[in-house]
Amino acid sequence: MLPSRKGLLTWLGRRRWINWIPSTTYLLLLFYIPIAMLMYYSFWRYLKLFRFEPALTLENYLRFFTSPIYTRVLLNTIFIVGVAMALLLIVGFPIAYFIARYVRSSADRIILLMLIPVEINYLIRIFAWRTILGENGILNSFLVAVGVIEKPLPIFFYNWFAIVIVTMHEWLPYVVIPLYISLRSIPRSLYEAAHDLGASRLQTFLKITLPLCKPGILTAIFIVFIPALGEFAIPALVGGKSGYMIGNMIENQLLAAGNWPLATAASVILLATSLIIVGIMVKILGMEALYR
């Protein structure tokens, strides 16, 4: 006999774990199994263009780590993202500090102002920077017009620093927001106590403000580092030779070179790298930072 409608609702209400079934099932099928599949493919043997056979070989990993090109690409990727991350924190901190300390009542409005152009238009923004930094771009034609240079120079574009700039544009609000939230929760009296106990402005910053911002810094790193490591549209559009990132290599191997075993091995390495870097950051900054 079917339970009455009310009976069914009560039955469901008592069994809250049922709520987990849709999401865990979905992710099991479309996320965890594919990840296992990815790892599985990474041990296969590559024959030729889009041809590979099942195997349990480490040769794809060996090839990645013994090839000077691929390891360079990986290190290059970490370097570019690291520089972007550092600059983001350096640029984001004063902004977050300004909002938290001086204009807290309009904090929402300022953050909104930063978010509006950033929450949408991913490719448009890369395109916009191309138009500014490119050889036929605004910057060059401006410099020519005012007479600083004689003809357009290809120096602003197709290099790793262009990636850094575009990445900063991409993520700045998402760095400012967690820093702002951290700074907001520091009571003013802590700064005053530090001053009162003899600390100068700089000492207060180093000994009080910065350590108490750890949760914000860690959150910002979580938010920016992971997706930025797997970036391939930005380097493809503005990166050039010095801005070749592991994302480009994976895309190329997977779709053009048809070397799935190598591409999947590189993906596994990328995944591991991002987890390791996040792990190191957690280690340095302290896990308790996340739960405060």
């Binding site: 479309l30 599949m37 979580f222 797997g230 997977l254 799935w260 993906s267 990328l270």
Partner: peptide, 18 residues
């Protein structure tokens, strides 16, 4: 359920394609 947050989008793309 939160792990996908710690995975680069590129990897999500790659595993889905595979």
């Amino acid at each position: 359920v939160l792990l996908p947050f710690l995975v680069p989008w590129l990897v999500i793309g790659v595993i889905s394609l595979v």
